[in-house]
Amino acid sequence: MISAKKGDWVQIHRIELKPSERSSNLPQDTQSVPLEVWQKGFATHDAIMGDEIEIETVIGRKAKGELVKVNPEYEHNFGKPVAELLTIGAELRKILGGEENE
């Protein structure tokens, strides 16, 4: 069972507005799902994954929610090599070089 100890850097999740509580002026796909929120901070007490936990954020505010991650990582990256982009530089240099390079 994954758990967080007091002082661990964690991520919490909670429902901010249920579908019925949301703005009435939304497209259908958005209207049918809740408004959810994620925050990060230091656990103020021990907790098990999925439990409600209180955190203290980096600016010292308290927030509560379901514990979803301990040591949450950044997972975005540079992407995969994109074939559609790889030759653009060489193509442009060829144009720039003009006839004398052909």
């Binding site: 901010e16 507005l17 949301r22 703005s23 002026n25 939304l26 958005t30 799902v33 809740p34 408004l35 959810e36 929120v37 994620w38 925050q39 990060k40 901070g41 954020t57 980096v58 600016i59 505010r61 950044y74 975005h76």
Partner: peptide, 23 residues
Amino acid sequence: GRKCEALGAEVVQLTVGPELFYT
């Protein structure tokens, strides 16, 4: 979001919707 955190901000991440303004 990562950059805001790197610069010392608290980041509140939401799902899609204009209620960003409500929050």
